[in-house]
């Protein structure tokens, strides 16, 4: 059960990263290849997944973001998918959720890794990207009920509601 829950939370985190990747990739990801002016060719071929290379290097979406920086010196020849192996770092992009910057790694023509380099909220604080609510089974939380509680927490009750509440019983027991 615990395993399933952990898997769930990992999947939830990945979902967030995937969103982040789309934000970065769709707007300003520059290939880090050094093969002369060839960097735009893969994108020009219009293959699937080419969003990673279509940014025509440097035209970083005009949202005031930092320019993309090459991060790997060499790249393998383009594979059949049209994606060249290497690491690609997206520009820092302003989004509704704050600044987002991602790096993706392509190996064998496939995306093998996506890393969030920067994720901040509007106040500039870094965001806990793993802090997302994931499904949890009722049985997982039930055992904790047997702990000795001193108070209870629930949706707002009125004076009348209090009289029937667990809190009222606890207050009487501990008066």
């Amino acid at each position: 059960m615990r395993k399933r829950a952990v898997a769930g939370s990992i999947l939830a985190s990945m979902g967030i990263l995937a969103v982040g990747w789309q934000i970065g990739a769709a707007t300003a990801v520059t290939p880090s290849t050094t093969s002369g002016g060839a960097s735009g060719t893969a994108g020009a071929s219009g293959t699937a997944g080419a969003s990673a290379t279509t940014a025509a290097s440097g035209s970083s979406s005009g949202s005031g973001s930092a320019p993309a920086a090459p991060s790997a010196p060499a790249a393998a020849p383009a594979s059949s998918s049209g994606l060249k192996d290497g690491s690609y770092t997206g520009a820092s992009e302003q989004t509704f959720f704050g600044n987002v910057q991602v790096r993706l790694t392509i190996s064998g023509g496939r995306i093998t890794d996506v890393k969030a380099l920067r994720l901040t909220d509007q106040g500039g604080r870094s965001v806990q990207i793993s802090n997302y609510a994931a499904p949890i089974l009722r049985q997982e939380v039930l055992a904790s009920q047997s702990a000795q509680v001193s108070n209870v927490n629930g949706a707002t009750y009125t004076t009348e509601g209090y009289l029937q509440s667990v809190q009222s019983a606890l207050d009487q027991a501990k008066a």
């Binding site: 001193s150 108070n151 209870v152 927490n153 949706a155 667990v166």
Partner: peptide
């Protein structure tokens, strides 16, 4: 401190 959280389906 330990606090219990009420079950919305059964408030008792």
């Amino acid at each position: 401190w330990i606090t219990g959280i009420i079950d919305p389906a059964d408030r008792s």
